[in-house]
Each structure stands twice: as structure tokens, then as C-alpha cells.
């Protein structure tokens, strides 16, 4: 039963992705100044939103792990798996943002990269979470979960500071499309629809791979626990 549900969800996600692609390429109208290259926006922004969402999942997992590691070790293991899965999937989406952004910027601004508030924040966010994944790979043994959780919290605290620092420094990125002032917001309903479908599709896709990553991590946690138990039994 569970298998069927997961299969259905995966199929629905792929269908959503195809539908979102169709909306973005064939339905949404051409933008007046940027023309075709503006369609990158339909992949770029939903990926950025998903990345932030999954980094938030990772932060919740880190805090949950630290809070529960003494009294509820079983819960703590789950939290840790969420923290790792969130960070890894977030890094994947963040990579998409960092790759599609310059491609768009080259056509729209004429430059690949600029040290602007949001670009720099995203890049540093990516660096922080890559360093988080590196720590998990380098540090061995049972303390790695605790150390990674601490680093995850540090990274999350750093993000608003980075953002403020760069905002004071310089800003070139277009103002936020939503909640960015009186002129913001997408006017054309077909563009809005294409954008909305892609947000939905990419978040659904992200949740799917988050679930797979979580499952794989849980399996490896169980395998480790089992190995430890068998080693104990042999003594």
C-alpha cells in the first residue's frame, strides 16, 4: 500500500514537472524586454524557494537533534537524518540556482556574476552547507551528528548577517518579485500560472528526493547500529 502511494506520488511529481515545463515554454507569453531568456526565471526562482525551504528543514533537524539526543535517542536519529537530507537536497537546489542565475545574468545584465546582496548570500549559503556536508564526511564516529548539528545552527545564524552585510554593500539583483514594493508582482496571469505550477512541481520533486535521501540515511543508520550490536555479541 505504502509502495503504491509512493509510486503514485512520484508519477504525479513527474507529471507536474512536465506540465510546468509545458506552461513555462509554450503557454507563458514572451516577456517584453528580456524575451525568451526570461523563461529561466520559471526554474530559477522555484529552485531558490525550494533551497531555502530545505535548508530550513535542515535547521529544524539540527535543533531537534540537539534537543532530543539525551532523552530520546531514537527521535534524535530521525532528526539527524532530516538534517542531513535537508542539507543535501538544499545544496542540490542551491546549485541549480547558482548555475541558472549566471546564465540568465549574462543575457539580462551582460555579466555572468556580480557581488550583489542576493547572489553573494546564496553563494555563501551554498558554501556553508557544502562545508556542513564535508564535515559529515570527514569527521568519523558517533560525535559527528552532534558536531554537524552545531555547525548547522551556526550556518543558519550566519545567513541573515551575510544578507544584511551585502545589502548595505551593493545591490543589483532585481527587487523581489513578490512583496518587493508597489511595482512588484507578476502582472500577466499566464506568467503567474506558469510560475505557480513550477513552484509546485519543484517543491513536490524536492520533497520526493528529500524522502528518498531520508530513507537511505535511516537505512545506513540502522546498518551501523546493527554492526555495532553484532560486534558487541561477538565479544
Amino acid at each position: 500500500m505504502k509502495r503504491i502511494a509512493i509510486g503514485l506520488y512520484a508519477a504525479a511529481t513527474v507529471a507536474l514537472l512536465v506540465w510546468g515545463y509545458y506552461q513555462a515554454i509554450f503557454v507563458a507569453p514572451d516577456e517584453a524586454t528580456m524575451h525568451e531568456v526570461q523563461r529561466i526565471f520559471y526554474y530559477h526562482v522555484p529552485s531558490a524557494m525550494s533551497a531555502f525551504l530545505f535548508f530550513a528543514v535542515s535547521l529544524v533537524g539540527s535543533i531537534g537533534f540537539l534537543a532530543s539526543r539525551r532523552n530520546y535517542p531514537e527521535h534524535a536519529q530521525r532528526f539527524d537524518a532530516w538534517a542531513l537530507a535537508g542539507a543535501e537536497v538544499g545544496v542540490v537546489f542551491c546549485s541549480v540556482v547558482l548555475v541558472t542565475g549566471p546564465i540568465w545574468g549574462r543575457r539580462a545584465w551582460g555579466i555572468w556574476w556580480t557581488w550583489d546582496a542576493r547572489l553573494t548570500t546564496t553563494l555563501i549559503l551554498w558554501l556553508i552547507y557544502v562545508s556542513y556536508l564535508l564535515l559529515r564526511r570527514f569527521a568519523a564516529g558517533p560525535q559527528v551528528q552532534t558536531l554537524a548539528a552545531v555547525l548547522g545552527i551556526f550556518g543558519a545564524i550566519d545567513v541573515p548577517i551575510v544578507y544584511m552585510a551585502n545589502r548595505w554593500w551593493r545591490t543589483q539583483h532585481p527587487a523581489p518579485v513578490f512583496f518587493g514594493g508597489p511595482d512588484s508582482g507578476i502582472k500577466d496571469p499566464r506568467m503567474l500560472a506558469a510560475f505557480g505550477w513550477n513552484v509546485l512541481a519543484w517543491i513536490a520533486w524536492g520533497v520526493l528526493i528529500l524522502g528518498i535521501r531520508y530513507y537511505v540515511e535511516r537505512q545506513s543508520q540502522k546498518a551501523l547500529a546493527r554492526e555495532a550490536l553484532e560486534a558487541l555479541n561477538q565479544v
Binding site: I124, L127, I128, V130, S131, Y132, L134, L135, F138, A139, A140, G141, Q143, V144, L147, L151, F154, G155, D158, I161, V162, A165
Partner: peptide, 19 residues
Amino acid sequence: RSRNRELLLPLILFPIFMP
């Protein structure tokens, strides 16, 4: 307490220190 700690320290310190 990690393996190759000399390598790890700059890798995790610099991103946080950037702002």
C-alpha cells in the same frame, strides 16, 4: 577529533567568517 583536522578547520571556518 576528526580525520585530517588541519584541512577541515579552514573549510568550515571561512564560509561562516565571510560576512
